[in-house]
Design a binder for these strands. Structure first.
Length: 269
DNA sequence: ATTGCTTCCTGAGCGC
DNA sequence: TGCGCTCAGGAAGCAA
């Protein structure tokens, strides 16, 4: 049994890369739903799922394309994991679905909190572009774009960066880290961000994400497990979950949009 | 159009 | 020991 992933953009990117190694070219036999509500299969006939032709990432979505014209869209949410095995294994108690291949190998979808989803839909009905903003690592993500998105927005910059229609792929922990590095307070209104600050936010976003991807993605989606020997990203965290800033000031913890925000009231203005 | 609140769910951690 | 409570959070859905 080999574990293949963990949530958040860098982790999803890592999973996608590893998935390519494992399942590209394999022929799907079936998708089995082990827990009701996990799989939404919109096939209206007995069409085969075909052979895997590509595995892609868009935001935090995993897109598995086959030559049948259908795509399998996976979202891990907080606790989803994809685990690949060459053969039948003992199914874990949190296994919610299985993608079974003709050669006997299986991709298990494990998800403790059951928020994750698998959708099977015709490729032409994949409407991700309509609900997602641009990729933070693309060249299109720049200060000009961000300023346009922040224009006339009075919501806190923290919430805006978490909004997948603004930028696709950032999660709570990353946004805290990005704003900390940028020296921008998370409570600032979107429309108060200057051009210089936008440039800084863009640069820090790319840097944080690249660092995380370079370290192969890590276990940060469930912060309780950062000490669980599953990842190394906790070594990069400078503000999330911290008590004290390197400047000596106490880290402030507040709730924004129902999620914990950590920031330094001294370093972040 | 935008904002902000609620909902889904399980396991960890805490107080008693 | 074990009960009950709180918390973690991505995104959809809804209300204002």
């Amino acid at each position: 049994m080999q574990e293949v992933k963990m949530p958040e953009l860098p982790e999803v990117e890592t999973v996608v890369r590893e998935l390519r190694e494992k399942i590209l070219g394999k022929e799907l036999e079936s998708v089995e739903e082990l827990r009701t509500g996990t799989v939404c299969d919109s096939r209206n006939d007995e069409r085969e799922l075909g052979t895997i032709e590509a595995v892609k990432r868009r935001g935090k979505y995993i897109i598995i394309e086959s030559d049948s014209g259908y795509v399998i869209l996976v979202h891990l949410r907080m606790t989803g994991k994809l685990i690949f095995s060459e053969h039948d294994d003992e199914v874990s108690s949190h296994c919610r679905a299985e993608l079974r291949f003709r050669d006997g190998s299986i991709l298990y979808f494990d998800d403790i909190r059951t928020f994750g989803t698998i959708d099977i839909l015709p490729q032409k009905e994949l409407m991700l572009e309509k609900k997602l903003g641009i990729e933070p690592l693309s060249n299109d993500f720049n200060a000009e774009y961000l300023l346009a998105k922040f224009k006339n927005r009075k919501a806190p910059v923290k919430n805006l960066l978490l909004n997948q229609k603004v930028v696709a792929g950032l999660g709570n922990i990353y946004v805290c880290e990005i704003l900390y590095r940028s020296g921008v307070s998370p409570v600032r209104r979107g429309d108060s961000i200057t051009e210089k600050e936008a440039e800084q936010i863009v640069a820090d976003t790319k840097q944080v994400l690249r660092e995380a991807i370079d370290s192969n993605g890590t276990t940060i989606s469930d912060y309780r497990r950062v000490d669980d020997k599953q990842g190394e990203f906790q070594n990069f965290l400078r503000v999330y979950g911290k008590k004290q800033c390197s400047c000596g000031a106490e880290i402030i913890r507040i709730k924004q949009g129902g999620r914990s925000t950590y920031y330094c009231g001294s370093c972040q203005r």
